[in-house]
């Protein structure tokens, strides 16, 4: 079951981006300079930006024209992933079906997802009463519970310190990948990418290039990646 993006073209004013990629289960890192269109690509897959051409399909079924909620896609944004006035349990529960009134069975599933990300006993708290790392975990619990096959991470852990961020990436690896989910992750940090990504897509000069295995691309970086990484790679 693969995510197939075929000849997709995105135009916003002067900006344009073309994408032709195939993603398998596992983590695909999306790298490239600022303003190259990494977030735009994810927004298009999530359904927030209408493409001017091309198709997107998962498991052979096209979803180019579906609404964001109908797509087989969950997304974590850079911030505002939790509603501040709702409890953690309510926030996580929204992953099930966008409702706040849940059945007993659904409530159990919510409680389990909260335990799975290590937030036992915090279900009744509001996000403000949690640390940054715990908030990220809560958002991830919702993604787990939603169980959609494609997960888009638009740098949701960027505000965390290095150790917390590593923890979150490991949690993604541990909890999402065994279920066969396809994770697309925007990243600026080659260490993150090496830590968790199976393959890398490069976004540069108006093109999203086909994904290459992570080891391969860092051993022999293409020019665009070399220019972007400088000495870091």
């Amino acid at each position: 079951m693969v995510l197939k993006i075929n000849n997709l073209s995105l135009v916003q004013g002067d900006f344009s981006l073309r994408a032709d990629i195939v993603c398998d289960a596992g983590v695909t890192a999306v790298m490239g300079p600022s303003g190259a269109g990494k977030s735009t690509l994810l927004a298009a897959i999530a359904g927030f930006i209408a493409p001017t051409g091309g198709q997107m399909a998962f498991a052979g079924r096209e979803f180019t024209d579906l609404t964001p909620a109908e797509r087989p896609v969950s997304m974590l944004f850079q911030d505002n992933n939790l509603f501040p006035h709702l409890t953690i349990a309510e926030n996580v529960g929204l992953g099930l079906r966008g409702e706040l009134r849940l059945s007993g069975q659904e409530k159990e599933a919510v409680a389990q997802a909260i335990v799975d990300v290590g937030l036992e006993g915090l279900a009744a708290r509001k996000p403000a009463a949690l640390s940054g790392g715990q908030q990220s975990r809560a958002a991830l619990a919702r993604v787990l519970l939603a169980g959609r096959p494609i997960v888009l991470l638009d740098e949701p852990f960027a505000a965390l310190g290095p150790r917390l961020k590593d923890e979150m990436l490991d949690l993604v690896r541990e909890r999402l990948i065994p279920k066969g989910q396809i994770v697309l992750m925007v990243s600026h940090d080659p260490n993150d990418v090496k830590r968790i990504a199976d393959q890398v897509c490069l976004v540069a000069e108006g093109r999203v290039s086909a994904a290459k295995p992570t080891d391969e691309i860092f051993e022999n970086p293409p020019d665009a990646l070399r220019a972007y990484l400088g000495d870091m790679g």
Binding site: A43, A46, G47, F48, T67, P68, A69, E70, V73, S74, M75, F77, N80, N81, F83, P84, H85, L86, L94, G95, R97, G98, E99, L100
Partner: peptide, 25 residues
């Protein structure tokens, strides 16, 4: 601006969005 995309991607109904998200804020 803060929560529109999140609410849309979660598939909130107009009712839940208006009464449980917008109004309390």
């Amino acid at each position: 601006a803060d929560f529109g995309r999140l609410g849309t991607s979660l598939g909130l109904s107009s009712r839940v969005w208006t009464w449980r998200i917008v109004l309390p804020r």
